[in-house]
Design a protein around this nucleic acid. Sequence first.
DNA 1: GCGACAG
DNA 2: ATCTTGTCGC
Length: 283
Amino acid sequence: MAREAAGRPPEETLSLWKREQARLKALLVDRDTEAWQRDPAFSGLHRVGGVDVSFVKGDSVRACASLVVLSFPELQVVYEESRMVNLTAPYVAGFLAFREVPFLVDLVRQLQEKEPGLMPQVLLVDGNGVLHHRGFGVACHLGVLTELPCIGVAKKLLQVDGLENNALHKEKIRLLRAGGDTFPLTGGSGTVLGMALKSHSCSTKPLYISVGHRISLEVAVRLAQRCCRFRIPEPVRQADIRSREHIRKTLGHLGPPAPGQERSQAQSPKACPKGGLGEAADP
DNA sequence: GCGACAG
DNA sequence: ATCTTGTCGC
């Protein structure tokens, strides 16, 4: 019945997927299209969305897809939908979208039907945009299919087009000082594919931001940073937290025996000095 | 055989 | 992506 989602697909499938990526890439818009994007204070921006997919431990098929919408600039969750899904495609680097995007599109469609007034004005996506083997990562894919502005937010550098997580790269990371500091990720062709962003004043690892759809890289970076209470932008972080929680509540006590011990952690994951929400000061 | 490998 | 315990600080 439920087909496996493991094992590498045949070369023929990958070739079809590549053609699909190339086809959709022609529809990608890699510049600002919204008025709020031109405003230095993002006035006019009220709703930011986040999506994520979490997985069930020993299961290669079952997963939970989540879409959340947060108010901006308050970053309060105003909408959430989490749904168990059956994955059909395996994870193959460079083809993440074929595994996750169909379910995310469904979630956006459902929101459009039930609460169109809560449709996010921009979506932060876990993964890359144009910082991708063929310039069309999951954030581009979701953006083109939904026509929503999208931003790619990756936690690890995808080493493509000459980009390497080498000593030089690590040195550049070390030189990032304040939250909001960045350096460009320039591919072999000389094109800037994305930006490394120190999203929080006290986080060692940067975020790798790239254009998904209908937004410029500069605005994408600024917005991602303004969405950060911690290292991970709040929309993506909330989608992640809530999709795991949904899994736990749905099939939490059917396998791994878990003694109960509730915790409250409404605040910082690791804790870091303090500050309004951004920078350092200069005496 | 070795290294890469978003999530 | 997933698993995991403690540790430190407010």
